[in-house]
Design a protein around this nucleic acid. Structure first.
Lengths: 158, 158
DNA sequence: CTTCTAGTGCAACATTGTAGCATCTGGCGT
DNA sequence: ACGCCAGATGCTACAATGTTGCACTAGAAG
């Protein structure tokens, strides 16, 4: 585990660029990693593989699903991104903004959209049997987003 | 764990048997549903599809993965069972014991075991954007269980 | 510019879950 | 007890998501 707090020499207080973040982790700066990290930085909500794949395809960058998987794995492993398990069995990814900042997520069961709930902190450990150790907590609220409506069956959506 | 087998059709206050539960939902009492529901009732922790499949195979009941999927879907749909998303992309299932009783779960990232944390209620809604509605909250703690050890890499453990 | 190896791309595979359809059977009426 | 038939089952085939192995490409260091 290392410190991704390497700032650009010119602007020590600014958020490091994607390029700087990648280099600071000892990895090569490749178009795939760059594009993925920038896409995550630019998105208001966590992105699925599929969404990222579409974005990269639009930029004619990644021509392979596997490359994307590996780039994401690398980002997660280096602490630059975080993996979130949605209700379906597809991962979502978001950038890690603050070191210890963990927030809950909202998953729309209708359209699959995932939203960050910055205000809601995932409450950590309660009474666990001895020998158990908690590394992280994931709090996911399920329901319907505004676009999908509270209850009326909007069959035409999606 | 706490299975008081005191369920006769004549005692309306006791917990209904699996057979009664199924019949009460308007479904046919088949060996698959019966075996699945009883397996869930008898288990201290949520069971994965795989585990259930093995149990049914041992009893020579379900000869098909699909049948098991459908039986579980039916139980969930009728409110007799509940589906939990683990860290991997396999569902776990547990019986619904009390109508509104929702508890958190612990997922061992090493062996995949899931544990119920009865004391820990999944804290519901916080500030959500207008138009969003929450149906349920899932709180999952991730870490290592006692068998897998807190940090030493026990490579021989699955 | 050359070299070394991390990263990429491809193909094949693994796991988990669904769809369609023929067959069987639990519960019902007779 | 008998037969009916929609609901359940058991196939096979398929879909979605993620992983592994290996040959090839291209960052970046010298």
């Amino acid at each position: 585990m290392n410190e991704p707090h390497i700032h650009s020499p010119a602007s020590p207080n600014a958020r490091p660029t994607a390029r700087e973040q990648i280099a600071a982790c000892g990895g090569r700066v490749t178009r795939t990693r760059l594009a993925v990290l920038e896409a995550l930085h630019g998105s208001a909500h966590p992105l699925s593989h599929d969404e990222l794949g579409d974005m990269l395809a639009a930029e004619a960058i990644a021509h392979d699903r596997v490359t994307l998987y590996r780039a994401l794995d690398w980002l997660v492993e280096r602490g630059l991104a975080r993996r979130i398990a949605g209700g379906d069995r597809a991962w979502r990814f978001e950038v890690v903004r603050g070191a210890a900042h963990r927030h809950a997520h909202f998953h729309c069961d209708r359209c699959g959209q995932v939203l960050c709930l910055e205000q809601l902190e995932a409450a950590p450990a309660a009474a666990l049997p001895t020998g158990y150790s908690v590394e992280r907590a994931e709090l996911v609220l399920h329901g319907h987003c505004a676009a999908c409506g509270p209850e009326h069956s909007a069959a035409e959506i999606r």
